[in-house]
Nucleic acid binder design. Sequence first.
DNA 1: GTCTATAAGATGATAGAC
DNA 2: GTCTATCATCTTATAGAC
Lengths: 195, 195
Amino acid sequence: MTIAKPNGRTRDRILDIAQRLIQSRGYNAFSFSDLAKELGIRTASIHYHFPTKADLGVALLRRYRQNFRDELGGIAARADNPLRHLARFAALFERTFSADNQLCLCGMLSAEVATLPKPVAGEVERFFEETERWLAQVLAAGKSAGLVAFDGTARAQARMLLAVLEGAMVVARGMRHGTHFQGMARDYLAKLKAA
Amino acid sequence: MTIAKPNGRTRDRILDIAQRLIQSRGYNAFSFSDLAKELGIRTASIHYHFPTKADLGVALLRRYRQNFRDELGGIAARADNPLRHLARFAALFERTFSADNQLCLCGMLSAEVATLPKPVAGEVERFFEETERWLAQVLAAGKSAGLVAFDGTARAQARMLLAVLEGAMVVARGMRHGTHFQGMARDYLAKLKAA
DNA sequence: GTCTATAAGATGATAGAC
DNA sequence: GTCTATCATCTTATAGAC
């Protein structure tokens, strides 16, 4: 008796395409038909991997959060100082925006949150909380080392940095300008440098 | 012979409802059916006022930009100093977010810009350009008066302030937190104050 | 200005064959 | 795992009566 052993290749490809489509067009503007066309299979086959669109959304967000955690772990593991960590963090966003003005997945979903299946909205919330926590640690370490300067709590500063990066993506995209994002990211990081 | 004299009441109500729905749910997540239900009329009647959804979008954005210009004009006309002007500007965004975590209309549309009819996307771009220009003037005036301090160009600072407010809305909404927006807005304005 | 009626197309989803 | 076939529903839009 053979045991079903899905290699998950199609499943991953579905998630890859879904992620790109959501970051470009949004959750409400991509369809199973879009995925099927790109994959060269039928929509019924997508439903085999993800019974509902909400299931797909949750699976995508879980993978995304895990990947993002890995990226943050990789940054923190480096022997760099906290200022470099912040720069590498911002570079993650810049890399995304450079790819055809794509937004952060959770930035896009946050805008659409009122229309999302509840479990998907919950994943978005967790993304922001985790990211804010990580950034707060880096900022606090930087302050302790005398490399980073800011008023108020590290948490509030972390949230603000996140807001700047998310907002810079939105504004640069709305203005349809290719380089405004990196300009804002660089300028804001410069403000955090201790004199 | 009587001349048709549309009072525009229904037309305006359509735009009112459409604006609220877009700021809450997005352009791709509201339908003529939603409008018809709230108004107590049929979708065909909406099409009488706006032949296509793109027409509705353009009309909404034109009205919105005009209203926003009027608000900015009202702020600039006050005898306040530039710092107060910035605070009143931020208050416009806070008022919006206080209303059921609504986003800035153009912040929401900016996220969806890849899926919007071209004329609608053009209006979004104009909104950001106009707003950036107005903010840059206020910032420059504040700097001349020694009340506002910043590095770089007034344009870049204006863009950054806009990004902070848009991003703060997105992050606060994604975290489903009611007061994070005002916290970030207040903190960022404090940074602009000259010592 | 609003209605009924209608249309064509998209969408999320399921049943059952292969 | 993928297919065909089918479904109910939603969506934008038009024609023509009132």
